[in-house]
Design a protein around this nucleic acid. Sequence first.
DNA 1: CAGATACGCTACGGTATCGTGCTGTTCAAG
DNA 2: CTTGAACAGCACGATACCGTAGCGTATCTG
Lengths: 197, 197
Amino acid sequence: MPEVDIKPDKRTERSKAAVLAETYRQLSQNGLANVSIDEISRASGVSKTTIYRHWPSRSALLIDACSRLGGNVAVPDTKTLQGDLRALLTDLAEQLRTASWSAVVPSILDAAERDVAVREMQTAWHKSVMSPFELVFERAKGRGEIDPETCPNYLIAMVAGALFYARWFSRAPLDTRFVDAIVDAAVQAHSADTPAL
Amino acid sequence: MPEVDIKPDKRTERSKAAVLAETYRQLSQNGLANVSIDEISRASGVSKTTIYRHWPSRSALLIDACSRLGGNVAVPDTKTLQGDLRALLTDLAEQLRTASWSAVVPSILDAAERDVAVREMQTAWHKSVMSPFELVFERAKGRGEIDPETCPNYLIAMVAGALFYARWFSRAPLDTRFVDAIVDAAVQAHSADTPAL
DNA sequence: CAGATACGCTACGGTATCGTGCTGTTCAAG
DNA sequence: CTTGAACAGCACGATACCGTAGCGTATCTG
């Protein structure tokens, strides 16, 4: 069995961190397509040679940087679907308004349209961002708040889709009124006590 | 008063059409960022000099081509919100699945994030694509099918957002089941006879 | 302290892009 | 037929980018 505890080497860590930080900065400022290795090297002070020592290609670096984009979301537990949804959507709206990754997403979607590796990264990102929604809806189903036959994915598509639509398509303000309207509509649409269609 | 009826000149029309056609092709295949004037010239047979005679810059050509993307949507009139919505969303889902502009949209959103001219073009495109939805909801409000105080934009965000979400984010199948679920949820959420929240 | 390792610097080679001149040719209009 | 407009083809300059190579230096580890 080989030595498992490898020595980190400060220099490597330092270079990697500087490169990733600058990549992240350019990413959120210029979008995925307009990130340049030369510019990363210039701005970060890390030699281009060193960059290619740690990442085999530009694509690898970009995918590595992108996969660290989304933050970890706290899953609320207010014991009601309405409360949980409001918390989740308020947080998501806040991030869409202020977080830097919000400006990067379209360029990722664009690249994912034609690049398999990017598509896989985007799928993983999407899964991790949306998992709190699945959990919240499953718990609501367990409490009998929504029809057990309703597919949670449809609900997720409507509530998350509404926010994404406002952020990138209609450019409508992502304020409290909007979030509340979405929450109320979603809760009312699939509450278990409404007459079956 | 100067001569108003200008001669079209076949040659000019022919060149413009060929360039726009090839631009459109590259656009839907490679996305907005990866359209090259040199390549357009090669593939269309129109000299690069001529291209720059008709469009002052690459950006102008791209915006011109993009603004011709969306088709004109037929506004249904089934006398019920449910019927109208189903028709609209079925059509939109079909286009999202097959139309070539569907693959271009992310690159437009990306460019719009940083380019004012693209943003204006995208706003106009969005308005023209979404106007049928506004009309349908306004008519439903006139018939008393939805609460008159409900803002149609919220409903539009939910139904259109759901489809966009499925197309570009979750990559879920845009089939009849999905469309029906969205329609039913939207109708049920804001029907006028549900108890006020 | 000494060896190993990571690093910075500089310079490539190759490709792609935009936008512009210049020259000669084709085509439409009068 | 004549004339002028629109065209193609080609070359150019400038810029930017990727990924690699050589060489000397700084830094970490043992």
